[in-house]
Structures are given as structure tokens and as C-alpha cells.
Design a binder for these strands. Structure first.
Length: 577
RNA sequence: GACCCCAUCGUCUAGUCAGGUCUAGGACAUCAGGUUUUCAUCCUGGGAACAGGGGUUCGAAUCCCCUUGGGGUCGCCA
């Protein structure tokens, strides 16, 4: 009955049919389609992918959508996109652009129910699994009782005492029931883990776990075991939160006569505070804020209906939809923690840098090399160098790597990629500038950019209308414009007409004029005139080098902004000291 | 609480499996100087760790045990 997938796939796409003795390495990433891909999941995917690439094997993607309540098609597309953005391509799995397909599908578990049923029947018929009729409420009560008495709870196998006719009758009545796997008595399970070594669990620690839910869907444990077998998965690389599951899977595999895969459990990724980095962290941050504000009903503008609000507030496991979470964060003024791949994409990080950083979290190539590309990972990745201890996610190191990568880029590349970034997230920058302006804008910012987000955030003033620039009476603004015997306003007024005569309006020509003026009037101290101009045209003390800044703005805008700034002189000087 | 996993600078790690070359290396962060028209870069230098206690051994960051600390799991979620 078992399909020998490894043989079936050899030869496909002209692969390595001559190496028939060693089974082709096949790894898989199997997320549930809830929300975007978070960094922990991304790292698991990366390790699976890199391991398959290194071994010349195949990397598959499977969607674990057996929870009818939580699965949604749109969410799954979200992380396909995240994976593709990172450059993690799957050989088999859901079809998406030029990825996916394959002979061992379907790759959505919800479409494989008949396969699970076949094996399920086999187990029940052979007495290795049995039907159980306790209701969820009864089980919850039993757990609570055990907890109150401070004893560990384990399913009491009550259903095992049911005689065959009772079971038959109840089934005929259509009584809801689950199927439980009968854990063999007194058999300690030892699993071999490529990272952790031998892990041994006593049979008495395991209960007869559910393998089919009352709705007819298999549980995770059962579906995983069947699918991994049918899909020919040889190596299961996943987060350590799954370690406790592996003995269950091993037992199922033994019972079904399947080979066990090689397991590799990778340590978890933590937040800086030491807690597990989880996609629920965003909701956690929001809930904490909501509680401290004592909000009983959804705040205005959050677009959440009161009932959903109450449910979300009351259930630690509940997650808001991404859009609603963002809205709520906006309304409350909370900064959501960046934990999804997508968050870093929005933040202007390079996919190859995130991939590099993720690889370094729990793995190292040995020696001192830290920065490397995809090809290097595919060439060097191995299970033997995976670190056992958990790692904290360090934003500042990621940022430093991103800076290095941007600085190492050649100029044309940078312009192109910043343009692509703007196309995706900041189209206004492209609309408001000519191609030439944008190029100058990009290059003027390159050396000072740690992310693609930096030039955008600090460069809003470039695309704003001349007449909405304001000069808030901050310390920096006052220093540039008001301080000193000869103040910034004075210098601004003095160079204004000089700039008006500047022709052509190029950085070098502007530089010529301003340095000459500074030589004559400020002992060659260019800053004394550059800074007032910077503040006048941007409204603040920060901008790219002044000559570039002025070129991007153009002569008209520069003069208009200087004039408006000068006009606000009295008002600004009236403030503060 | 029970079971399981883990333990080198603030953080990620090299070194551990095959004990000596480790007065423990790198990176990020930090501190001090310097360059710079702002911000950011950039350059130079400094401080910073083998969790504690027992063994084994001529010799332990490396092997063993205990303690402590951190984490994971304990769902008809995956």
C-alpha cells in the first residue's frame, strides 16, 4: 500500500537517477495557513530548503489546513509570497508562479482526507486505534479536576472499556466521537535527533492521543505522519516546540510500518526579553495596551465589532486579522513588534540580508565568516553545525548587516532596488519625482541608508508641496536659524539672491557659489550657511548633502521655500528665548 | 506541577564530538578618540564571557554527576 515516492521521483526533471542506492533527500516545510510567515517559520523553511539544496534533494511545501476554523486561502498566499521574496523556492507544493506542482500532491491537507481515512481504518481494524465518545466538555472537566488535585492528567482510556455493540449503536446514532491512537504499554520511545542526539520518552508519559477529530478531519499528528510518508520525506527539520510530538509520530510510524525520518529539532528564536518569539506577540502587545487603558469596547476607528472585540480580549490565543491589528495599533499609538517576514520587507530590509541573518540564528558555518549569500548557504549548510541553545533575535545586528549590504551594492543596483521598493510601498515618491530626480535622490541617500525605509522616512519633505513646509521651534531649528550675532536667517537672506542667479542648477555649480560665499563671509565654514538652507528647505536639521538636496528640489522650490522661511522669521524669533 | 531540552562577553557565535596550541577568537551593541556642511557613514583604540559546586585527569570551556538558571510541551491548534 505504501507508495515508494523516492523511486517514483528519481529521474523526474532529469535528476539523479544513477544514484539509486542513497534515497534522495526530501525535506518539507509545512505551515498552517494562519497569517503571514513569521521569522521562526522562515528560519525553519530556510534550514529545510538549504539542507535539500546542499544534498541535491528536493524541498516541498505542504499546507496544513486541517483546522477548519482557522484556515483561510488568502492567508496562505501571503506566506507563499514571503517565501518567494526570501528566495526560498519549493520544488513541490502549491502551484504559485513558477514554483510548485509535483507528483505527491495534493499539497493541501484538506484535499487529502480520503488518504487519511484509508490508514485510519487500517489502525482501527487492527485494534491500534479506537473510537472515543467523551465530549470536549467532559475532557476539560477531567483536566481541571486533575489540575486541582495537582496530579498529571492523562486520558483514562474509558472508551477502551466500551463493548463492540455499544460502539456500533452509538455510531449508528451518529454520536460525535474521535479516534484515539492506542499507545503501546510500557514501551519507552527513543528518537534519534540530528541536533540533540538521543531523546527518550517513557510510554507512561504519553496518553492515547486523538488522531481524528469529531469533524472527521485528522489531527496534526496523524496527517503529518501519513503525508511525510507518502511524500517521501526523509528529513524533518523543525522548531523545538515540536520535540514532544516526535515520540507520538514515531509510535504512529511504527504502527503503520513506515520508516522514521531523520529528525532535527532546531532551538527556538526568542524576543530580546527572553520570551518565545511568536506571531501572537502583536496581539499580546495590543492586549496589554488595551488592558492598561481599560478599554471595554473597541475604540473608534478600529473597525472591530464589539463581539469580536470581547472574544479577542478574552482569549489569549485569538489573533486579530493583520489589517485590523494594524488599524488598532494606529488608533492606540502602539508600535507593533516586527516578527513577520513581511514586516521586515516593509521596513526596507533586503531579503538576502534577512536570510543571512536568519541562517546565523542557530547555525554557523564555523570560523569567523558571518556574511554570506544564498549560494554559500546552499553549499555549506549542514545539520551538524546547528546550535542547540536558543537565540535571541537582535534587531541591531540585522540592521548593521543591512547597512553593509546596501553599501556594498553598486549605484545602479541601489537605484533600481529602491525604485522597486517605492513601487511596492511608497509610490508617491515615484509620482512626485522625475526619473532623474529620483536617481539623484537615491544616490544622495545611499551612503546614509541602513534600509530602503530610511531615505523615505527622512525624505518626505522632497515630495511635499513648497507651501506646507513648516519650521517648528525646536532646538535644532532655532539653532540653525536664530542663534548667534549673525544668525541663520541673516545668512539665508544674504545667499538667497545668489542662489537665484545660479546657472546651471547643478550640485557643482551650487557648491561653487556657496563655498565661495562661505569663504568670504564665514571663514570658509560651509556649515554656517549650509545648515540654515537645509532647515529652510526641509523644515528640519537632517537631509542629504546640501548640494544634492537642492538639486533634487530644483531652483524654484528652493527659492520658494527659502522665501517662506524668511517670511516666518519674526514668528520664530518670538518663540523661546 | 510533570516530562523534555538548553547553558562561552549585553547579544549572535567560534572553540566542545576526537581534553593541552584558549593569558578563550570574530561580529553586533557599548565606551573613548578622530574624520565629516546636518543626519548617517567611515577610521583607530578600550572594556566585556567559559552559571556554581563536585569529580575524572599530569592537564578541563571541552568528559561525568549534582545544583541553579532559562526555555518548550502537557488541545478534538498546528
Amino acid at each position: 500500500m505504501a507508495v515508494d515516492i523516492s523511486k517514483k521521483n528519481v529521474g523526474q526533471r532529469g535528476s539523479i537517477s544513477h544514484m539509486s542506492e542513497a534515497p534522495l533527500v526530501r525535506t518539507r516545510f509545512a505551515p498552517s495557513p494562519s497569517g503571514h510567515l513569521h521569522v521562526g517559520g522562515a528560519r525553519s523553511a530556510l534550514f529545510c530548503w538549504a539542507f535539500a539544496r546542499r544534498a541535491g534533494g528536493r524541498f516541498l511545501l505542504r499546507i496544513e489546513d486541517t483546522d477548519q476554523k482557522r484556515s483561510s486561502e488568502t492567508a496562505s498566499v501571503g506566506f507563499l509570497e514571503d517565501l518567494a521574496w526570501l528566495g526560498i523556492d519549493w520544488d513541490e507544493g502549491p502551484e504559485w508562479h513558477d514554483h510548485g506542482g509535483g507528483d505527491t500532491g495534493p499539497y493541501y491537507q484538506s484535499q487529502r482526507l480520503d488518504l487519511y481515512e484509508t490508514y485510519m481504518d487500517q489502525l482501527v481494524e487492527s485494534g491500534l486505534a479506537y473510537r472515543a465518545f467523551e465530549t470536549p466538555e467532559e475532557l476539560t472537566a477531567a483536566r481541571a479536576a486533575a489540575r486541582a488535585e495537582k496530579r498529571p492528567y492523562r486520558y483514562d482510556r474509558g472508551a477502551l472499556d466500551l463493548d463492540a455493540s455499544t460502539v456500533k449503536n452509538w455510531m449508528a446514532e451518529g454520536r460525535p466521537h474521535v479516534i484515539r491512537f492506542r499507545v503501546p504499554d510500557d514501551a519507552a520511545t527513543t528518537i534519534q535527533d540530528a541536533v540533540l542526539g538521543e531523546v527518550r520518552v517513557e510510554a507512561s508519559e504519553l496518553e492515547d492521543f486523538v488522531i481524528r477529530k469529531a469533524d472527521g478531519f485528522p489531527t496534526y499528528h496523524f496527517a503529518v505522519v501519513i503525508d511525510d510518508h507518502l511524500m517521501g520525506v526523509t528529513h524533518v527539520i523543525r522548531g523545538q516546540e515540536h520535540l514532544a510530538n516526535s515520540p507520538k509520530h514515531a509510535l504512529l510510524q511504527d504502527a503503520l510500518g513506515f520508516d522514521r525520518p531523520v529528525w532535527a529539532h532546531v532551538s527556538l528564536i526568542f524576543n530580546p526579553d527572553g520570551s518565545k518569539m511568536s506571531k501572537r506577540d502583536k496581539d499580546k502587545a495590543l492586549r496589554t495596551e488595551v488592558r492598561s487603558l481599560g478599554l471595554e469596547t473597541p475604540p473608534e476607528g478600529s473597525e472591530i465589532d464589539p463581539q469580536a472585540w470581547a472574544e479577542w480580549l478574552g482569549d489569549k490565543r485569538a489573533q486579530l486579522e493583520t489589517g485590523k491589528a494594524v488599524k488598532l495599533a494606529e488608533v492606540l499609538g502602539v508600535e507593533l513588534p516586527a516578527i513577520n517576514v513581511d514586516d521586515f520587507r516593509h521596513g526596507g530590509y533586503l531579503p538576502e540580508v534577512l536570510l543571512n541573518y536568519l541562517a546565523l540564528l542557530g547555525w554557523s558555518p564555523g570560523g569567523d565568516q558571518e556574511q554570506f549569500d544564498r549560494a554559500f548557504i546552499c553549499e555549506h549548510f549542514g545539520l551538524d553545525r546547528i546550535v542547540k541553545s536558543p537565540a535571541k533575535f537582535d534587531r541591531s545586528k540585522l540592521l548593521a548587516f543591512n547597512l553593509d549590504a546596501i553599501q556594498a551594492m553598486d549605484d545602479d543596483q541601489f537605484v533600481l532596488r529602491l525604485e522597486a521598493f517605492c513601487q511596492d510601498f511608497e509610490p508617491l515618491f515615484l509620482e512626485a519625482m522625475t526619473a532623474h530626480q529620483f536617481k539623484v535622490f537615491a544616490l544622495a541617500n545611499k551612503a546614509r541608508s541602513k534600509t530602503f525605509r530610511d531615505p523615505i522616512d527622512s525624505g518626505r519633505f522632497f515630495i511635499e508641496a513648497d507651501d506646507i513646509i513648516e519650521w517648528p521651534a525646536t532646538k535644532a531649528v532655532r539653532k540653525a536659524l536664530c542663534k548667534g550675532e549673525v544668525c541663520g536667517f541673516d545668512r539665508l537672506a544674504a545667499v538667497r539672491d545668489l542662489l537665484a542667479t545660479c546657472d546651471p542648477w547643478t550640485p557643482s555649480q551650487i557648491e561653487l557659489i556657496l563655498t565661495a560665499w562661505a569663504e568670504e563671509n564665514c571663514d570658509g565654514n560651509l556649515g554656517q550657511v549650509a545648515q540654515p538652507i537645509r532647515v529652510a528647505v526641509s523644515g528640519g536639521p537632517v537631509s542629504p548633502p546640501i548640494f544634492d538636496t537642492l538639486e533634487i528640489l530644483g531652483q524654484d522650490a528652493t527659492l520658494a521655500r527659502i522665501d517662506r522661511c524668511l517670511a516666518s522669521r519674526e514668528q520664530l524669533q518670538g518663540t523661546g528665548a
